[in-house]
């Protein structure tokens, strides 16, 4: 944490203290998408912003030491496939593509509403990873002065 890349000391220290809170709130929003406002889209953006917080405050080198960027690429591609897998499981078990084949549970419980919860998680991973990676690529893109 000694390199000069990134922002000033104040931003770095506040990021260090607050990044777990942002991540926890994003995951909370994803997991309660079927009970309260929010869901996979909103929670995914919050997760992406938590990672971006570290990227903007500490710079690229620190972030690439912390996260495995190649793995995030794989995760992003895999989540789109997982959505399809859940849809095809719906054909075999519920009779239609993306049918809600899991148990409905009781209203207002966390594990309820069948496939809505897994789909929310898949969408959260998808949205979060892709938005983080876009800014990652944009931040690494340096324009060299043409002549």
């Amino acid at each position: 944490m000694q390199q000069n890349e990134g922002m000033t000391l104040i931003v770095k220290t506040v990021t260090r203290i607050s990044v777990w809170m942002i991540l926890l709130y994003g995951i909370y929003i994803i997991f309660h998408g079927h009970l309260t406002p929010g869901g996979g889209f909103a929670g995914g953006v919050i997760v992406a912003l938590a990672f971006l917080n570290v990227l903007l405050a500490y710079g690229r080198k620190f972030t690439s030491d912390w996260l495995n960027i190649g793995f995030l690429h794989d995760l992003e591609a895999a989540s789109a496939t997982l959505f399809l897998v859940i849809g095809i499981l719906g054909i075999s078990m519920g009779g239609a593509f993306l049918a809600n084949f899991l148990t409905k549970g009781e209203l207002f419980a966390l594990i309820s509403a069948g496939t809505i919860l897994p789909l929310n998680i898949v969408i959260g991973i998808k949205v979060g990873m892709s938005l983080f990676l876009v800014v990652w690529v944009l931040a690494g893109f340096k324009i060299e002065k043409g002549d």
Binding site: V45, S130, L131, V134, V137, L138, F141, I143, G146
Partner: peptide
């Protein structure tokens, strides 16, 4: 959001 990211990437590339 996705299209905005794409447009920004295009604009940056054109600027380059």
């Amino acid at each position: 959001l996705g299209t905005t990211a794409m447009l920004v990437a295009l604009a940056v590339k054109l600027f380059e």
